[in-house]
Simulated assay, not measured.
Amino acid sequence: MRSGDYPYPADDFDQVSTVGPRGAHRAPRSRWSRWWPFAVVLVVLPVVAFGLVTWLSDWRGLTGTDDAVITAPVDPEEEAAEEPEEGVPVEPEEPVEPEEPAEEPEPEPEPEPDLTRPVEVFNATSVTGLAGGAAARLETAGFSDVAAGNWSGARPEASSVLYGSEEDRVTAQAAADALGIGAVELSAEAADGIVVVLGGDYQA
């Protein structure tokens, strides 16, 4: 628009000045005004986050640090079955008796000597009366059927008591103990009972 076509009178604002800007304007912003919002975020946000975590850790429903006791629901019927009814006597449980240890079998008793078995005493030495004295000792020990005589076979080196069967072993041992003879032998020469042969080692 040309100046001649402007319908209003001229005022102060129509005068253009070359000195500098005129009218309302903003001053340049300082450095702190630009950075303080970021500083607030950096400081306030960690504090708020720490407070939120602390609050959540104190809430038992979220942390789960406390040992929660879970109680299973009790069936009313089972609970009623466990409790005895009033007025009904409860039978006491019978005590369990400890099992007795198994008894060890007793050893079979040793068979007794048969003092009625015939015993023949032979003198196989040159000492007179040796067989008679041994026969008397056997009778004193309880033997009832004892005979004395002289040995006709080979002279033995030591005295011995002979028996003809296993049944006479105990009786032969009893005769040997009564006469102090250590040798007790199973022999066919004593088929009818016990045979005692006195040698030079016999002590009358």
Score class of each variant (00 low, 15 high):
V184M: 04
E78H: 03
A49V: 08
V161R: 03
Y202P: 09
L56K: 11
T116K: 07
P92S: 11
P28W: 13
V48A: 15
D11H: 02
S144P: 00
A204M: 15
A81F: 13
L45Y: 01
D58L: 09
E79Q: 07
N150E: 15
V74G: 01
W35S: 07
L62S: 00
R117W: 00
D11V: 06
G4C: 01
P21E: 12
E77N: 14
E103P: 09
A102I: 05
A81K: 15
V197I: 12
A175L: 04
E79S: 05
P84C: 09
M1W: 09
V41Y: 14
S17Y: 07
F38D: 02
R155Q: 15
A154D: 11
A10N: 06
F13E: 12
R22S: 12
V146A: 03
P84G: 13
F50C: 08
W55S: 02
Y163T: 10
A158Y: 14
P156Y: 06
V88D: 05
V184L: 01
Y163F: 15
G4L: 00
A176P: 03
E166M: 13
G149E: 02
T71P: 04
Y6L: 04
P118S: 03
E91H: 04
Y8A: 13
D5G: 02
S187E: 10
L179E: 10
